[in-house]
Nucleic acid binder design. Structure first.
Lengths: 120, 120
DNA sequence: TTTACATATCAATTAAATTTGATATATTAT
DNA sequence: ATAATATATCAAATTTAATTGATATGTAAA
């Protein structure tokens, strides 16, 4: 309970934690969320995405790589086009983390007004 | 389909997108995921968290603020202690985004091996 | 009422992510 | 072959986030 504890040497984060951390990081950008929204119903090639999002190609490519590296997207090449699509199982991994969290957490009593100054 | 589209002037991201973006960003850090794991079963005061995570107080305080600003945590003061706890409804917001995404996305055919050079 | 403790905040630094412009690679059309 | 298109990658610049050490604020114990 003291405050004098020092910082420990960096522990390697557990595998699961790293996977979640990277997945959530990939989702933490508005451009990447827009990419995902566009891919929700159909796969699209890079130039389609480029047009619809009005992004420069290298910028889009960077974000696609982030999403692909975390397995949230997959791609397939057809001729000179590369089509990207959602990889739903990886979204499920993140969703399951959140649902487990809620499932295992105790019901907290509803917050009574005035009970908590940090309210709001 | 051309590649010559210019970058548009930054559009304000939609409210929902911003909320999701910030929520996921808050989850995209190993320290913050550890905090959440500790709070999963019970609320804890800052000094408890400080001890268990072996973090400096100001560092922990920074991360608690990130989580609280995104509504993933709530706090309550009791004497000189401040107790933090999960705010499950906000986790549900993120979970629902992911589940809607999966619900609305078409079933994709299982990937046949060799179908895709970008495999793996 | 002075002291110790718990927590938050701040300015300065460090580190990490993003953007940009240029270039490279691969594919197809001519 | 040569040119044009689609995409990826890279180094440099920029922006954003995280860490650190110090200090401020509030609470309670002595």
């Amino acid at each position: 309970m003291t405050q004098t504890t020092a910082q420990s040497t960096a522990q390697p984060a557990s595998v699961e934690t790293t996977c979640l951390e990277l997945g959530f990081k990939a989702l933490s950008d508005p451009i990447r969320l827009k990419i995902i929204a566009l891919l929700q119903y159909q796969e699209l090639c890079v130039c389609d995405l480029c047009d619809r999002l009005e992004l420069r190609q290298s910028k889009l490519s960077f974000h696609l790589k982030v999403l692909k590296d975390t397995q949230l997207l997959r791609s397939r090449q057809e001729g000179r086009w590369v089509y990207y699509r959602l990889n739903l199982p990886q979204f499920a991994v993140l969703e399951q983390y959140l649902s487990e969290l809620r499932r295992l957490s105790p019901m907290l009593p509803p917050r009574l007004c005035g009970e908590d100054e940090d309210c709001g």
